[in-house]
């Protein structure tokens, strides 16, 4: 069915969950909520660049919530995005050690942060580490892993697109890449502990 210019919450969630038109779904989120989220940051001592960074992270946390099934469908996308954005921005302010501003805003923002949102934020720190390790992989590894896990292509499709001789070659290559990634993680005790903690916090 053809969608209207502005998608409903349901349509956005379906497209992201089904990994179909992800870019268009993200675009819908930007069209619908960027102004609202940006306004919050700007009204709380943030710049346009602060707002852009915060919103980018907000979107990532939101998509992770959908991906991991932590998004409660009874909540509206608007309220969840607003909650995530607010928490990320307050955390940023806290990190900046801007105590005057922090207390000023934090006193106003004593509302209970949604449980799922805070869990997702904790998880994100672990994911940031995984993503940093991922960046150290070779280009071919990164391509195969993203095509398989993010774009949901089959081994056959990847073999065809990336010009591998067979799907089995892709499967083997993919396993080696995953092993390389997890070895990096397990080989670094500090990183491993951080991810484990993030895993616990995220549960």
């Amino acid at each position: 069915m053809k969608k209207s210019k502005f998608w409903t919450d349901q349509e956005i969630l379906e497209e992201i969950s089904g990994a179909k038109q992800i870019n268009e779904a993200i675009h819908q989120l930007y069209k619908g909520y960027y102004g609202l989220l940006e306004n919050y940051v700007l009204q709380n001592n943030g710049s346009n660049a602060d707002a852009a960074d915060t919103i980018q992270e907000t979107m990532l946390v939101f998509l992770n919530m959908i991906e991991t099934g932590k998004f409660r469908k009874e909540a509206s996308i608007k309220s969840v995005l607003y909650g995530i954005n607010r928490n990320i921005w307050l955390t940023t302010l806290r990190k900046r050690k801007s105590r005057d501003h922090r207390h000023g805003i934090y006193d106003k923002e004593q509302e209970q942060v949604e449980f799922d949102v805070s869990k997702s934020l904790a998880e994100m720190e672990g994911y940031q580490l995984i993503m940093a390790l991922f960046e150290k992989l070779g280009e071919k590894c990164k391509r195969i892993l993203v095509l398989f896990y993010y774009e949901n292509l089959s081994m056959d499709e990847i073999a065809l697109r990336e010009e591998y001789s067979s799907d089995q070659v892709v499967r083997n290559k993919k396993f080696k890449c995953m092993k390389q990634l997890t070895n990096q993680l397990v080989g670094n005790r500090n990183l491993y502990e951080m991810v484990r903690n993030a895993l616990k916090d995220g549960k």
Binding site: I22, I26, H27, L63, N64, E67, Y150
Partner: peptide
């Protein structure tokens, strides 16, 4: 840990898409 790693890869894909959008 493995599942978490896979999810991290997916998020990397999301991150690139978000950045582009």
């Amino acid at each position: 840990l493995l599942k978490f790693t896979i999810n991290g890869i997916k998020l990397k894909g999301y991150k690139d898409s978000i950045k582009q959008v």
